[in-house]
Amino acid sequence: MVRFKNRWLLVELIPVGTQPQSTAAPTHHLEGKHIWAAVRQSVLANFGDVGWGAVGLSLNVKYYSPTTNICIIRVARDHHRIAWGAVTLLSAIEGVRYIPNVVHVSGTIKHAQLAAIAHNREVIARYRALAKTPAAYQDSYETYLEKSTLEIEALQD
């Protein structure tokens, strides 16, 4: 029996120039299918049909959070650098400019989940710092962290 080996990319999509920094989380109508389509276009534009043929079957956006703008992308291990390069070369998704930041690359979904949960906590801490709220303050971000942690932990390979 042969096992398919994957790489998991944890990507933060930082919006560019859409609004000044505020205490509210950015709201965009971006979904996993939009990210997948943008990565597909980037692979085709930068690596051609051969690049898309290498990563096309295994490329999958497993998770996207519109609150913290992070996503988890699965791709085959042998060609993960093509997908990584395509993500890095992205400039816009659905007409909105983004700066993609690959935060973590892992070989297992478990490590990608742990990195995503830790990164979510960092982003929420940044939002709280911008709002100048104390760390013990009970706000809507606390329920978001609990909900997102459960969603991320529920991901299956």
Rank of each mutant, 00 (worst) to 15 (best):
H29F: 07
Q156H: 12
T149C: 14
V105Y: 06
E153D: 12
L30Q: 07
H29Y: 08
N6W: 11
I93C: 10
T23S: 02
A112D: 03
G17F: 01
L9W: 02
A118I: 00
V11H: 02
P134C: 15
V102H: 02
A54L: 06
L145W: 04
P26C: 02
T67V: 12
Q41R: 07
L90W: 06
G32A: 13
T67D: 07
A24S: 01
E94R: 03
A136L: 10
E122V: 12
A115P: 01
G85A: 03
R77I: 09
R97N: 15
P15K: 03
V50A: 12
F47V: 02
L59H: 02
D78V: 04
G53M: 01
H29W: 04
Y141C: 15
I93Y: 09
R126W: 05
V96N: 06
C71S: 08
I124A: 05
G51Q: 00
I82Q: 03
A24V: 05
R3A: 15
A136W: 04
D139S: 14
H28K: 07
I70K: 00
S42H: 03
D157W: 06
I14H: 09
P100E: 14
S65G: 05
I124E: 02
F4E: 11
V2Y: 12
Y141W: 13
N120D: 09
L145I: 07
I70H: 00
H80V: 06
L13A: 07
E153F: 10
A125F: 10
Y98E: 02
V61R: 00
K147T: 06
R74E: 13
C71Q: 04
R74S: 15
D78S: 12
G85E: 03
T68P: 01
A125I: 03
I70T: 11
E146L: 08
